[in-house]
């Protein structure tokens, strides 16, 4: 017993100070492609995206993060210039679905600023998203320090964290979990699969994301989103962080233009 205590003490503090201090350690996030201005001939790169996440707008290549699966084809395809790669992990946003009125989405608010309970539902995820979420509870990220806890029963949950494209066999389970939660409740869809079905959906056996079955409030894009991105999503749902858009940002010299796919 003593050995373990000493071992723990000897290891020291590994936990990140995010969100009070920005986290810059290499390897915490794979980063993601961002808006890049290309010559017209290179706009063909859009066609090379196997996830159909790239689109052109006003002379630039933009990224729809609901679809991007981090396949690196847009940086590593020979014959094309590399797309700009942006670091960071603050990716979470309001759910960007036309059927959801964005104004109606509000974070949980003050009563939940110190204690939020989360129920995770795996609706067909590959395991990487689950692994990244599990990292949150472990020393490097330790989200308990922010008052975030995972609960085994949805009866006590405030946030439903859903991952995976929502397979048919999990549809009922997800629905029941959502219905079992008391209000106020928020749904955070984590990972590209949960946002758009990713490489799996829509198909005969899986849907095109969680929003088809239950209303999604917040989205965390990424394949998989690194732990801090998920944490950003949770803080967003608790009203303790600001959202970023689901499509790569415009810059100052942008003209409003039509999206080209």
């Amino acid at each position: 017993m003593t050995k373990w205590i000493l071992k723990g003490l000897a290891t020291g503090i590994k936990t990140t100070a995010y969100p009070s201090v920005p986290e810059t350690a290499p390897g915490v996030s794979p980063g993601r492609p961002g808006t890049t201005y290309f010559a017209d001939k290179d706009m063909e790169l859009i066609k090379h995206c196997p996830a159909k996440a790239l689109f052109g707008k006003a002379g630039s290549v933009r990224v729809d993060y609901r679809r991007c699966i981090h396949c690196f084809q847009c940086t590593r395809t020979e014959g094309y210039p590399s797309i700009d790669w942006e670091d960071g992990f603050e990716w979470a946003s309001l759910a960007g679905y036309p059927e959801r009125d964005q104004v109606s989405i509000t974070p949980l608010g003050r009563p939940f600023s110190r204690s939020v309970h989360i129920r995770i539902v795996d609706a067909g995820a590959c395991g990487a998203c689950m692994s990244e979420i599990a990292q949150l509870g472990k020393p490097y990220y330790n989200f308990h320090r922010l008052g975030l806890f995972v609960t085994p029963t949805p009866r006590k949950a405030d946030i439903l964290l859903a991952v995976g494209p929502l397979t048919d066999h999990m549809r009922l389970a997800l629905q029941k979990t959502y219905e079992a939660m008391p209000s106020p409740r928020r749904v955070v869809a984590v990972g590209t699969c949960a946002l758009s079905g990713g490489p799996f959906g829509p198909s005969f056996i899986s849907g095109a994301g969680i929003h088809e079955t239950i209303p999604v409030d917040f989205s965390v894009p990424g394949c998989p989103p690194p732990p801090l991105a998920v944490l950003h999503g949770l803080l967003l749902a608790a009203g303790r962080a600001e959202p970023v858009p689901l499509k790569s940002r415009d810059s100052a010299r942008d003209n409003p233009g039509k999206e080209v796919r």
């Binding site: 290499p26 390897g27 794979p30």
Partner: peptide
């Protein structure tokens, strides 16, 4: 090890390699 993978290949789970 995840961070090591990310630094080496750009992805924590070695996707796209």
């Amino acid at each position: 090890l995840l961070r090591l993978s990310c630094r080496l290949t750009g992805h924590r789970y070695l996707f796209g390699l």
